[in-house]
């Protein structure tokens, strides 16, 4: 005789253990699909332009873009513009992140000062920094410095807020332990507070490298003789859409590369974070 429990029929039936993954769900398979999507996108675009569905004058065409890009690469000007913009972005990112992080961490030292300046930080953060661009150009000229300054104004505030918040959130018990050991305030700061803020500060790299590029390109839009922003701006005023796209795609590749560099820094700089494995719940 079998016992039947009330409601047992409502329980989920046992399923096959490992849910079947799509055949292409491997590193190579995903890359293949991604490449196919890109090719399909450009093929559709090119076909649309040739068939006259979309205007080559307003959107450009992939083959046109390629031709322009090839000419600029062999002529050397694309590489020169790329280096210039990249240099501005990285310089702005590094300076802004360092200044912001240091200021944010320093606020840990005095709760009084931190509370005093908190509304000002919020006020500065709420201004769209891009609106500063004309003034920055007035102050720092049309050269490298104005673009770096704009990047710094964008990145510093992000780093400052993240570092300050992380320092405030640093584990109080770890700090208490150090104090009970007789540690000074400096020792508590350097041994407990700073290391515990590092993950948050490194997390801002990802956002700030993007802001660094924004500052550089917008600075070049306003006034510049060089750089990808300058290239895009002048080409668009001449309705040279192919050149505009060539500049944009170069920026995209640059952003992409920087993202992976940051990713690498993130993974190698915090070895103690890597000790765990990640699990994903199968739904």
């Amino acid at each position: 005789m079998t016992l039947s429990l009330p409601g047992a029929d409502r329980l989920p039936k046992r399923k096959a253990r490992a849910p079947k993954r799509p055949a292409l769900d491997t590193a190579a398979g995903r890359s293949l699909l991604q490449a196919l999507a890109v090719i399909a996108f450009f093929a559709l675009w090119e076909t649309g332009v040739r068939a006259g569905w979309i205007s080559a004058f307003l959107v450009g065409s992939p083959l046109g873009i390629f031709a322009v890009a090839w000419k600029m690469i062999t002529g050397g000007e694309l590489l020169a513009d790329t280096w210039f913009t990249l240099f501005e972005a990285i310089l702005g990112f590094v300076i802004g992140t360092i200044i912001g992080s240091l200021l944010g961490l320093a606020l840990w030292y005095s709760v009084f000062v931190a509370r005093l300046v908190e509304p000002f930080i919020v006020a500065i953060n709420s201004v769209p920094k891009i609106a500063l661009a004309p003034i920055v150009v007035l102050w720092f000229g049309t050269g490298l410095i104005s673009k770096v300054a704009l990047s710094v104004s964008l990145t510093a505030i992000v780093a400052l807020i993240a570092a300050y918040q992380a320092a405030k959130d640093a584990d109080v018990d770890l700090q208490s332990l150090l104090i009970s050991m007789g540690a000074s305030k400096h020792q508590v700061f350097f041994k407990a507070v700073v290391p515990s803020t590092l993950p948050a500060i490194i997390a801002t790299f990802r956002i700030n490298i993007g802001f660094g590029l924004v500052g550089a390109v917008v600075g070049e839009f306003i006034s510049s003789q060089r750089g990808l922003g300058h290239l895009i701006y002048t080409a668009s005023s001449l309705y040279d859409l192919d050149t505009v796209w060539a500049g944009l795609f170069t920026l995209m590749i640059m952003g992409f590369a920087l993202y992976y560099v940051i990713d690498l820094i993130e993974r190698t700089s915090l070895p103690w974070k890597q000790a765990s494995t990640t699990h994903q719940v199968q739904v």
Partner: peptide, 28 residues
């Protein structure tokens, strides 16, 4: 500075190795 305080939480510093954690007090 003269007590050895131990709590329910082990309070090991996650960014320090075992050796680094043991060295904490001597470092301070």
């Amino acid at each position: 500075g003269r007590v050895g305080y131990m709590m329910q939480k082990d309070l090991l510093f996650p960014w320090r190795t075992v050796l680094g954690n043991v060295l904490l007090g001597l470092e301070t």
